[in-house]
Simulated assay, not measured.
Amino acid sequence: MIAETGLAPIIAAAAGLMGGVVLLAGLAGGAYLTATTSTPMCDPGPCEQFPDVIRIEGLAGAERGLIAMQAALSMRGVPYSWGGGGPDGPSFGIQHGAHIRGFDCSGLAEYAWAKAGARIGGHTAPQWNAGARIPRTQIRPGDLIFFARDPARPATIHHVGIAVDAARMVHAPSTGSTVRIDTWAGDPYREREFIGVVRPAL
């Protein structure tokens, strides 16, 4: 279920941290950013690159989380590609993703946090160990939300999303889909597989 209502305040908070960047929110067509000194980055489709004008030096963890979330949101509409994506953005994947330029779940997470200045690795295993475990009640934008076939065994983690808030995440769900926002909290499938939340170390 795609859940984009109520995003404007969260996105505006992220944009407010980005000196020289103006947020243009048109949620039905996809919110997008434009630098005040350049042309729009998404017009209106998926963004190819997150703005380079953002200054990340000296930002606190919460601020960097907002930047990571905004970077992931800027990729909405980009196709899922198994094995695709990384710190530089979408890429061709491997095997059944070899002919699709896009992201898989961990590639999107790596991209988002690279834009916030953190290296978290390109697969769910290193990402699970890339920071502190956070109680579910303390989720904030940018935190990584993990899902496993057996929530008692981290070795079975198979999916990661980037928190928008305590109930929603932006993620690359599966082959045939695109990067999007979904509500995971309360969804029986996601609740069964929820294993934990990680806030990447800076």
Rank of each mutant, 00 (worst) to 15 (best):
A114Y: 09
G107V: 10
A71H: 02
F147G: 02
M41D: 09
P51M: 07
P135C: 11
R168W: 05
M75Q: 14
L33Q: 09
H123V: 14
D182G: 07
V53G: 03
D187K: 10
A201Y: 11
I100Q: 04
A3E: 14
S177Y: 06
R168Y: 06
D104E: 09
E193N: 15
F50T: 03
W128I: 03
P126D: 12
I54H: 01
H171Q: 13
G117E: 01
G85R: 04
S177R: 14
T183Y: 03
A60Q: 08
S91G: 10
Y32P: 06
A72M: 00
I2M: 12
G77V: 08
E193H: 15
R199T: 06
R168F: 05
P46T: 14
I157N: 06
N129I: 10
R149Y: 14
P87H: 08
L108W: 03
Y80M: 02
A148M: 01
A15G: 15
S38E: 13
Y111S: 01
A152Q: 14
R168P: 00
A62S: 13
L108K: 03
S177N: 13
I56H: 02
Y32S: 14
I100D: 03
T36D: 14
A130M: 04
W113G: 00
A118V: 13
S106Q: 03
G97K: 05
T175Y: 12
I11Q: 04
W184V: 11
V53A: 12
P200H: 11
P51D: 06
S174I: 13
A98N: 07
M1V: 14
T39L: 12
G131C: 05
Y80R: 08
L33G: 03
P141W: 02
M18P: 01
R64T: 10
A114I: 09
K115A: 01
A28D: 13
A112N: 07
Q138G: 06
D182C: 12
D43N: 13
W82Y: 11
F146R: 02
I145Y: 00
V53S: 13
D143L: 05
Q127T: 05
A71M: 05
R133M: 08
P44E: 11
A118P: 00
T183A: 15
C105V: 08
I2T: 15
I120V: 14
G89Q: 08
F50I: 08
Y111K: 06
I162N: 02
S91M: 04
P51C: 06
G102F: 03
H171Y: 07
G30F: 01
G58K: 06
A185L: 15
V179L: 02
P40N: 07
A28S: 13
G107Y: 12
A185N: 14
D52W: 05
P9I: 04
A152P: 07
A8D: 14
C105G: 10
A14R: 02
